[in-house]
Amino acid sequence: MNGEGRTRLPYLAAAAAMTAYCIGPIVFMALTAVSRRPDFLSPGAGLEFTAAHFLEVLRTKSLHFLEYFRNSLVVSAVSAALSVSVAAPAAYAITRLEVPGRTAVLFSALAVSMFPQVSLVGYLFRLMTSLGWINTYAALVLPYTAWILPLSLWILTSYFSSVPRDLDRAALIDGCGPLEALRKVIVPVAAPGIFSTALLAFIFAFNELLFALMLTTDHHARTIPVGVALFEGLHGEIPWGAVMAAATLSTAPVVALTLLFQRRIIQGLTRGAVKE
């Protein structure tokens, strides 16, 4: 039974390889961003640190990087907040109220999350154009919220159903209406779960590309992923240092959130996917 000792070395090697594989590209990105030349790994070249790429990205007005960044933060935060506040009452109804058709709602939400985004975007483009909303926050926030809702609903439903039923019964007896029971008891008790859901929703919105590509046209509403995807040099040659600096900056928030809340995110992801 004592295989631990014998398997220790291979385990460590495998774990090291896994870590290198996972963070290697991220480290490479960050190093390129601070390196004077992008081919610092090539034989004969070396790593010469410089902050020039970051400064270029942040200072060059025509790149609009900070505006993209702000747009991304606003759109993702509002979409996450909106989707959680819309999904929470629905998850409450599904787990507590025995509404006819609740299973249908849950499964249509699942079906929705299987839809290809491209099958919405053409119509959304026409819709937003006719409303005159192209290149506004609303053009992104509304589809994003709808797009993240299924995920939020599933995760919240799972969290809410793990809150004991007797707690909201107690609240009902203590004089709460259903909405009050949701607000005063279930939401606070499930707060960690709600936070995880909001976190996931934020990351999903923050990383979205296709809707943003179609529904925005410039720095007034364009988000970071579009900015990074379309970042090209002015003179034909791609300025890799600057591209990687922009990429590093735009990855920083999600990476920070992931490192800080690793457990919550893993919990949320598995709640959404693996129903116990």
């Binding site: 019964r169 107690a170 609240a171 008891v185 008790v189």
Partner: peptide, 9 residues
């Protein structure tokens, strides 16, 4: 309640 149902928060 049997499990007391105290509000944990």
């Amino acid at each position: 309640f049997q499990g007391y149902a105290l509000y944990p928060h």
